[in-house]
């Protein structure tokens, strides 16, 4: 290999990678991590179910303060397993779609779920008229639990989920566009990151077999992101609102997030999955 000023590409490992460089991981080696992941997702959805029940109870009772308090910690359990939930696009839309996906904006009939309720709680500062939306959110979450229970997780979707979570962060969390009324984006940010880390951890032995340096690099970038986010943690284990994030910290997050997105996009290939 010629030593050329293509050092950057070499660092990315791309030019060094001949065709089909990665031996496929023995499929049976995937069974453990894939099933452990489903167990993790099931646990996360159980938490989502019970937390959503508490959240919607507060909403229906008219307890604005509690509802506002419970909004962000509840969503975390969805954000961590987003790639699996997204497989059910109708539920994903009705549980977490943002207002700009609807032509008629906040008035749209099909704008439901967390962000619609968020609009009332944080922008209108009211719990009025949310009973139906609260009930629908609860039943949608239960529906999601049932569908996920019946789903055989395709291994490539499990492994690819790590990259998908980082794309979420890069596209919406890093700019504070996810929770535009409550500005609780940092909770979701951490949820996405934790979900991606979980997947890397479950497949760590297999990935290390292929590329130990890669795993070290990924770990380092996760640690950098965690460190910056930790600066904005509050005493009760939550996060400051997004507007508190300093410009230099926001910029400092971009590099590791984009690099993680690039690196994790190679995971499936490294494990010989399509």
């Amino acid at each position: 290999m010629k030593k050329t000023p293509l050092a950057l590409l070499l660092t990315l490992g791309l030019l060094n990678t001949p065709l089909s460089a990665f031996a496929a991981t023995a499929p049976l080696d995937l069974v453990g991590p894939v099933s452990d992941y489903k167990i993790y997702v099931t646990e996360q959805l159980d938490e989502l179910g019970s937390h959503t029940q508490q959240f919607t109870d507060a909403v229906k009772k008219g307890d604005l303060a509690t509802a506002q308090k419970l909004y962000a910690p509840t969503r975390v359990y969805y954000e961590s397993i987003e790639p699996i939930a997204e497989l059910f696009s109708d539920l994903d839309a009705s549980i977490v779609s943002r207002v700009d996906a609807h032509e008629k904006g906040v008035k749209a009939d099909d704008f439901t779920g967390f962000h619609r309720i968020e609009y009332s709680l944080f922008s209108e500062k009211s719990t009025q008229g949310l009973n139906e939306l609260a009930d629908k959110l609860n039943s949608d979450v239960k529906d999601l639990q049932t569908r996920v229970a019946g789903l055989t997780f395709p291994p490539e979707k499990v492994v690819g989920g790590a990259a998908a979570l980082l794309e979420e962060v890069a596209a919406t969390k890093i700019s504070g566009e996810e929770d535009r009324y409550s500005h609780t984006d940092l909770y979701d940010f951490q949820g996405n990151i934790d979900g991606a880390k979980k997947i890397v951890d479950l497949f760590r032995p297999q990935i290390e077999k292929q590329d130990k340096a890669f795993v070290a690099k990924v770990d380092k970038n996760f640690a950098t992101v965690d460190k910056i986010l930790a600066k904005y943690k509050t005493k009760d284990g939550g996060f400051e609102t997004y507007d508190k994030v300093k410009d230099n910290d926001r910029k400092a997050l971009v590099g590791p997030v984009n690099t993680l997105a690039e690196d994790l996009s190679t995971l499936r290939g490294k494990l010989g999955l399509n």
């Binding site: 499929p27 049976l28 894939v34 999955l273």
Partner: peptide, 18 residues
């Protein structure tokens, strides 16, 4: 032959065992 097709069912069964 490729065993990847069995990863799903085997994983599901392991979840069932869990």
């Amino acid at each position: 032959p490729s065993m990847v097709a069995f990863v799903g069912p085997l994983s599901e069964f392991r979840v069932y065992l869990a």
